[in-house]
Amino acid sequence: MEVFLQQLINGITLGSIYGLIAIGYTMVFGIIGMVNFAHGDVFMVSAFIALIAFLILTTWLGISSIALALFIVLIVAMLFTSLVNWVIERLAYRPLRGSFRLAPLISAIGMSIFLSNFVQVAQGPRNKSTPPMVQGEFVIFTQNDYAVTLSFKQLIIWGVTAVLLACFWYLVAKTRLGRAQRACEQDQKMAALVGVDVDRTISMTFVIAAALAAVAGTMYLMYYGVVSFSDGFVPGVKAFTAAVLGGIGSLPGAVIGGLLIGLIETMWSAYFSIDYKDVAAFSVLAITLIFLPQGLFGRPDVEKV
């Protein structure tokens, strides 16, 4: 019971990070029907930007308030990562819009290889570890000498994720941009006819996806305290699994899928085998796609002749 509770807390934390990345996959897929393979690497780049921003604040400017530092790091990471993804969309995906279906996928795979190797060359191949940014924890209860704890880090991740999801929901549901986005998702030609700037809307989708990935990247860095150039691939695939599980194209589905994947992974590690935890996530991906291709909340894909 106590182990289960602890794993539940850990799983929700991990799941929040996956959920934030998964929104990026699901939004981009929804609007241009492409699996943005490089999204995991954009997440990794954002973690590096967050690391660099954190080092500037603490070692150069000597800011001692961790809360303030984290807040600034988050904003900086979101800004720069958005710029990165905006440029990627302009250079690598926009020229291929309307081309045959595999072209953007191959381009995205190339971008993914490019990004991880770029970071390797620019920042070095070694793991970058930071001193713990946030310490301390609440002990919820103790049973059989096993303390179930909720660390401040986890609490911050829950809080930040919840706040950002609320902002994001407002953006998509209530603003002009969100309306344009939903219109483009349904029919790009029609949307263009009624005066929606399709190119700009797609660009903004990539920017929002990157901003959410940057939040995930900052949280990932704060939670684990270490990041390396190869950290984009596996979280990327897991977040994609989350998006598929929730039903690709569905925004609440991505968040719930993320939480489920986080929980499955931590429970699997706790009760079965930690070596095979990636196998668990990958199997969920395969099983979902085979038996439930529309996911939990997705629309069924109707085959038209």
Binding site: R101, L105, L289, I290
Partner: peptide, 27 residues
């Protein structure tokens, strides 16, 4: 198992299979 899948989905599931085989080899 992937007979029903098409396009991008097929790509992702085969990717997952490839990774599963590699992880099994490692472990």
């Amino acid at each position: 198992p992937v007979l029903r899948l098409r396009g991008d989905y097929l790509a992702i599931v085969t990717l997952a299979f490839g990774e599963i085989i590699r992880i099994v080899i490692i472990n």
